[in-house]
Design a protein around this nucleic acid. Sequence first.
RNA 1: GGUACCUUGGCCGAGUGGCUAGGCACCGGUCUGCAAAACCGAUUACGGCGGUUCGAAUCCGCCAGGUACCUCCA
Length: 489
Amino acid sequence: MKHSLYIYNTLSRKKEEFVPIHENKVGMDVCGPTVYGDPHLGHARPAITFDILFRYLQHLGYKVRYVRNITDVGHLENDADSGEDKIVKKARLDELEPMEVVQYYTNRYHKAMEALNVLSPSIEPHASGHIMEQIEFTQKILDAGFAYESEGSVYFDVEKYNKKYHYGKLSGRNIEDMLETTRELDGQSEKHRSIDFALWKKASPEHIMHWKAPWSEGFPGWHMECSAMGTKYLGEQFDIHGGGMDLMFPHHECEIAQNRAGLGKDTVKYWMHNNMITIGGQKMGKSLGNFITLEEFFTGNHKLLTQPFSPMTVRFFILQAHYRSTIDFSSTALEASEKGLSRLMEGYARLQKIVASSSSSVETAGLRAKCEEAMCDDLNTPIVISYLFDTLRAINLIHDGKEIISATDLEELQSVFKLFIEDILGLQSETEVSSGNDAYKKAIDLLLNMRLEAKQNKDWATSDKIRNELTALGFEIKDTKDGFEWRAP
RNA sequence: GGUACCUUGGCCGAGUGGCUAGGCACCGGUCUGCAAAACCGAUUACGGCGGUUCGAAUCCGCCAGGUACCUCCA
């Protein structure tokens, strides 16, 4: 029996059954990175969360168009007149062309994502390549009467919008509170209200990145790109929009308002938000300066890291928590994940070598359904993983010859493990890649066969010497009943 | 100040009314020349107080502590 997928919709604050707008097709938009810095652990979370969703929707048989944008126009540093493109600022510091910075960090992002086994989205549009669409969208909002021009910039009229629609429906805020709690109005004289946000911003003279628009030489406001690009590639109504929880307000709230004002209808059916990764209980982020880049994880080159952590360990660590929970980073937590993952992957490798018997003494039939059920319950990957570990025990017992499994059950188990470990969770074995070529493998086998002989002759000195030397080089040697297993460093 | 959320055993983390996920660590055992691995077993838990209920980690109230957003952030 096929389960229905339920996902948590931030709009309703409830798990809802996922029903696509168009049968068998899913449109999905996720906020991608701003490419002015190295990708860090925080970037890995939404990428992996929505990678899982992307993979699972496809597994369910949907044809998915996944749009993940690259923000390269930059956001305003602040709302004041001196607001400056982040990308421009960095470029000037580095004395690079803005697009050079964009290219550099985009490449770095892609490299990290590939290492994490995050699938490429269907379309990865750059904001800088969609200025026309953003200008047109802004014009639509102006035409609809929900924006005003002021000194070359265009602002969204939140109060007017709120009279007809509801500004704050996603984040649960109300406009009165926002007006009360926003104190500083200095330097914002262009705007009618402090809560109004820019759709188009006139560029100051020192601003390098700017484009021609009916109102001024300038650049789009920072919520505009999602409205313009999402609807361009997915239509005026599409299924899923995702991103980090910190984007809920103002970014996604403003996007909802822009789309409603410009198109006259709500665009997104399901809003999904992943929670943050914390470090010592605090959000890991740029402003706090407590983030660790993905490269630092992979190399171990950071004062908070006791060792390097492989991309798969990082991926597994993230999947061991539900995407809507905060997950607290620590080196010891990563170490625990690393060991768990390694045990899981070894068991998975063992599963391939198991020889079937005429019947089964272990019960494994329900695994597929249980895992599907967990995934359908708002992508509960930690539960899926716990089921895999439960089954791992049976696999090891069969491997040790203490239990038996029939050919039918074995085939099913292999199929389920492949489906969930590789296809859905996207975990891949890292040791096989690094094991090198055939000659190298044969050389190690040769050494270990010599050790086996020494053992048979009770020559413990030679036997231990080979094992100790190989261990010192980073190899893992395991004796089995009738031989050995080894793993490259 | 406003809004939302969180507090689970040594650590990380599931779980939303009864059936006490899982991982890592630790302890005991089996196996082994020794070790590793694997397996078996044991131990440790739901922030505090009160309420609802036959029964609460799970629902309600209060208190304490913490986090996020309200400014760029995944």
